[in-house]
Simulated assay, not measured.
Amino acid sequence: MKKGISAGEIVEPYAKALMSIAREQDLVDRMGEDVGMLREALQSSQELQQFLDNPIVKAESKKSVLRQIAGDSVHSYTLNFLMLLVDRGRILFLDDICQNYQAQLRQLKNIVLAEVTSAGELSDGQKDAIRDKVKAFTGASDVELEIEIDPDLIGGIVIRVGSQVLDASLRGQLRRLSLSLS
């Protein structure tokens, strides 16, 4: 990689190019599913990420593995895009490109991402209640939840939507109480 070039300067143009192709071909949702599946594969397998990031591994080997992973489950345009990333030496940015594509898709469809940190597992009813609150708060047409479990919260939840944070955790309440007492 050239000096002075940040990952953002690489990630965003590729994600925009993928979105442009998806819009031209009326495949925005389909490619959204594809990049979601690819992100899950990368996040669930550290070995896969290391394999794709390794500069010593030949491009043909990377392409072969990607073809096996993708199989018939991804659209041919998505597969061609993956091959292009390998050819251009940009496959190590795959997760970031997919994440950027998903952000563009959410913006296009007026969907917000709510990052929820909870002390324990949330029921479907609780997830629906969070979605409703975030919809009312943001005016979005839909809400995607990204849920993380953090037992250190003791109880309650923390919701992040963009730069806004709603801390309804017991830890947060204790912190606020301690600040007000001091």
Rank of each mutant, 00 (worst) to 15 (best):
Asp150Val: 04
Met31Asp: 00
Val165Tyr: 03
Arg171Ala: 03
Ile111Gly: 02
Asp128Asn: 13
Met1Gln: 11
Ala70Trp: 10
Asp167Tyr: 03
Leu177Val: 10
Glu24Asn: 14
Leu181Pro: 11
Asp72Cys: 15
Val57Asp: 00
Ile149Gln: 02
Lys133Ala: 08
Asp29Lys: 14
Arg67Gln: 12
Gly120Thr: 15
Leu52Pro: 05
Gly120Arg: 15
Val143Tyr: 03
Ala114Met: 12
Ser180Phe: 11
Ile91Trp: 00
Cys98Tyr: 03
Arg176Glu: 12
Ser180Lys: 14
Ala119Tyr: 00
Glu144Met: 07
Ser182Trp: 02
Pro151Ser: 03
Leu177Ile: 09
Glu146Ala: 15
Thr117Asp: 04
Val57Pro: 08
Gln102Phe: 09
Asp96Gly: 08
Gly139Thr: 09
Gly71Phe: 13
Asp87Lys: 06
Pro55Val: 06
Val143Ile: 11
Phe51Asn: 01
Ser123Cys: 06
Ala59Cys: 11
Asp132Phe: 12
Val158Pro: 11
Gln68Pro: 00
Ile130His: 04
Ile154Gln: 02
Leu153His: 07
Gly155Arg: 09
Ser182Val: 13
Val134Gly: 06
Leu38Asp: 01
Ala168Gly: 09
Glu9Tyr: 13
Asn100Met: 12
Leu122Gly: 08
Glu12Ser: 11
Glu40Met: 11
Tyr101Ser: 06
Leu105Gln: 04
Gln107Asp: 10
Glu121Cys: 11
Ala119Trp: 00
Leu94His: 04
Leu38His: 05
Ile69Glu: 03
Glu40Ser: 15
